[in-house]
């Protein structure tokens, strides 16, 4: 019986052969980070390793850190382990991390989606023996409409609001989702205004060369109502705060995978819910797992128990791994 390549500790996923952690949630000496969302990239580690695409945002969020970047697909040896980062399609720069020890290959998926969004580097299946998969949306009720059809819905909603003299307030997480939406908005329709948290990420990604349409940052001294027919992109929490009132009459929308469920849509009490997720849907999870060729599957955050039970009926050796991930899109 060979030693496991990766183990699960109270600090997170750990590689004994390389003495490093992946996305640890408590301070460790050496952390490999899949992407910049707060539940995966936490402060306090001795050394960080992340992709060239992901690191600028991580630096911006965590401040002074001892970090190194690595290109996709470049192998590096850490202790007795060989590691490489591969596109996860979750957001620009996001990665799955491949770890090989003594011929055994394990992959930690981080968060991922299998369908290309036109902005993030598309998900790349990595063959492995064991696959640690998220399953935020690991239920058969979660299937996503195509990005084109949702983009058309959002643009039509925006146009309709503009025609009715209303602003369009669109809620989306400030890293990833917001930029993905920006990239599909029809900028011909009117001005696009952004909340400070969204704009900070925009600025970093633009510097890195990601193509985003022009945006106007919302500032305290601006006349927010002067931008007729504007669409305003903001983090969901800002939509229900005093901040949102400056735009006058507005229709509110929220973009998330959870908007697939009517109960959650109603609880959010937004005018519109758009089904857009940066996580894999039910069929995406299956496609990804199948493509790895792995026989051993570890289900982490999401509907882990249900998902693992389902994988077992498919003949996989599936196991639930408790984690403390659960960030930007886990909470409904």
């Amino acid at each position: 019986m060979t030693e496991p390549v990766l183990t699960f500790t109270d600090r997170g996923i750990y590689c004994p052969a390389g003495d490093f952690h992946i996305d640890p949630w408590r301070p460790v000496d050496r952390a490999l980070i899949t992407h910049g969302h707060a539940d995966h990239a936490r402060p306090g580690h001795g050394a960080y390793l992340a992709t060239t695409g992901a690191l600028p945002v991580i630096r911006h969020r965590l401040g002074q850190i001892n970090a190194e970047d690595i290109a996709y697909g470049t192998a590096r040896t850490i202790g007795g382990a060989r590691v490489s980062f591969h596109p996860a399609g979750h957001l620009p720069g996001s990665a799955q991390i491949r770890v090989e020890v003594g011929g055994q290959v394990w992959v930690a998926s981080g968060d991922y989606k299998t369908t290309p969004d036109g902005l993030s580097e598309p998900f790349e299946p990595v063959r492995c023996h064991a696959f640690i998969t998220e399953c935020t949306f690991g239920l058969p009720v979660f299937t996503w409409p195509s990005q084109d059809s949702v983009a058309a819905d959002i643009n039509a909603w925006w146009a309709d609001n503009a025609a009715q003299g209303r602003a369009s307030l669109l809620g989306a997480y400030s890293l990833g989702k917001a930029q993905r939406l920006l990239s599909v908005l029809d900028a011909q329709q009117g001005p696009i205004l952004t909340h400070g948290a969204v704009e900070a990420t925009n600025a970093i990604l633009r510097t890195q060369g990601y193509a985003l349409p022009d945006t106007i940052p919302v500032t305290p001294d601006m006349d927010a109502k002067a931008h007729k027919g504007a669409l305003i992109l903001a983090p969901p929490s800002a939509l229900t705060s005093a901040w949102a009132r400056r735009f006058g009459p507005a229709s509110t929308g929220f973009a998330s995978g959870w908007m697939r469920l009517r109960g959650i849509r109603r609880r959010r009490a937004m005018d519109r819910g758009f089904v857009v997720s940066d996580h894999a849907d039910w069929s995406g999870l299956h496609q990804a797992i199948k493509a790895t060729g792995a026989e051993k599957i570890f289900a982490t955050h999401g509907y882990t128990e249900i998902f693992a039970r389902w994988l077992k009926t498919y003949g996989y050796d599936a196991e639930v791994v408790p984690t403390e991930f659960g960030g930007e899109e886990e909470a409904s």
Partner: peptide
């Protein structure tokens, strides 16, 4: 019709919170 075992539908139902909707979604 959806090609899933009944238990998986039953597990999904409380998360969706509405039977008619659960059936429509799967």
């Amino acid at each position: 019709r959806a090609g899933i075992p009944l238990w998986l539908l039953e597990e999904s139902y409380p998360i969706v919170g509405d039977l008619a909707e659960t059936l429509a979604l799967i």
